[in-house]
Design a protein around this nucleic acid. Structure first.
Lengths: 237, 237
DNA sequence: GAGTGGTCTAGACCACATG
DNA sequence: ATGTGGTCTAGACCACTCT
């Protein structure tokens, strides 16, 4: 029972010790760490082993290296947040409201960067909680005439994420998001069964292919306090 | 002029080639990559060099390794977004409205996990754009009786991020965030000079010390369409 | 010139997976 | 038994910075 502290590899020990020195303030942001060779002697390790520990800290965003000079502690960014958003709500059902081709309004034209005469496919759906109350409403738009039929399936994934989020298994596109607050207008209030003027959280998403083509645009309106977004920033431990 | 392709280190070439095979679909999510030794012979590289290339892909979240089995392509997560939020708005000024001790209302009690009798310090400020219009209003709360005077300065950083964001240079705390939409009530409409019922984006932040103590709570109301939040998800290139 | 990090190699031993 | 990834070493050469 004496030395059960034997599993941890050496590079990980180096990583952990340096890491805690950063968190307890022994190394402050901007300061330089001991050189690789110093760490080699301090930890009785080879240089590559030391470098492996440092690499972990670097990947984690805690340090960076200035070649030929040394390693430095990063200044933490408290303004970048990781936010999780899915259209899926615990215990809720999704109801497809309408699917049809249409001409884009101005907002959709801008979002998809298309002309007013370019037909788009519009998908509408509602998210309904177990009590039967509508908590979210989404509209999604795809350009109709598309050159790449191979992308069809992926677009379906993008459009039906509730069905396919776990299967959205391609690197062919990425997403950008915009979060804002809007008041329900007459039409929204009607379809979402809420009051006119009621504040809604609006989450817009742009589906962008790696070739920079815009492949889809989605509007997601959420009743409050349902569907608030949560996120984290900074480093823990 | 023939071979100017000479600067790139070998491990980086390995990384880039595997990466593009992931992005063009040669390797699909869930699939296994060639083994390290295969890659060694394919690229005429030593094992550690191959591993270095693989490590890059792993750090980037494109692949993961199942020890003793092989490397696999990750399934991309299209539901995690990186969002940037600062209280600073281009060209805007900040006006301190009020600073005083007070008893917390229910919301603040919950946020800071304190009792109703625990005094808190309340900071209020307004963000004003060049035209003189109010575009944001924030309220921040700090528990008054604090055990760690050494944290004082950091709290000031947390409370006055406009002054100190670039100096918020500690790993002693991290932040959690909540985004929602609210309607301006009478009081908000008054201080923000907007209509009652006008939709506002509300960004709440919780400042949490590494020892899990709650060090601060901030409410940030933003008029629309100012201060929308933008984010990204997925991998580009 | 001494010190730094960046790259790369050719081994080695291990624990575990699979057949 | 073979193949896999995980760890580790002791060198090596380079290009650069600092003084």
């Amino acid at each position: 029972m004496p030395k059960t502290t034997k599993k941890r590899p050496l590079y990980s020990t180096i990583y952990k010790q340096l890491r805690s020195k950063i968190f307890n303030g022994s190394f402050l942001p901007g300061e330089m760490l001991p050189s690789e060779s110093h760490l080699c002697t301090e930890f009785h390790a080879s240089r590559e082993t030391v470098r492996k520990g440092l690499k972990e800290l670097e990947s984690e965003g805690l340090i960076y290296s200035r070649p030929k000079i040394g390693y430095f502690v990063c200044t933490p960014r408290h303004s970048d947040f990781t936010v999780n958003f899915t259209e899926y709500f615990e215990g809720c059902t999704t109801q497809y409201k309408d699917i049809h081709g249409t001409l884009p309004d101005e907002r959709v034209q801008k979002a998809l960067d298309i002309s007013p005469s370019q037909v788009v496919i519009e998908f509408e759906q509602l998210t309904i909680n177990p009590d039967g109350a509508i908590i979210a409403y989404s509209k999604k738009y795809l350009p109709y005439e598309r050159a790449h039929p191979s992308v069809e399936n992926e677009l379906n994934y993008a459009v039906f994420p509730d069905i396919t989020l776990p299967k959205m298994d391609t690197y062919s596109m990425y997403t950008s998001i915009r979060i804002s607050a809007v008041a329900a207008d007459e039409k929204l209030a009607d379809t979402m069964q809420c009051d006119i003027g009621e504040p809604l959280l609006l989450i817009e998403r742009f589906f962008i292919q790696q070739d920079d083509c815009l492949a889809g645009y989605a509007l997601f309106y959420v009743k409050q306090p349902y569907g608030q977004l949560n996120g984290m920033s900074g480093h823990r431990l």
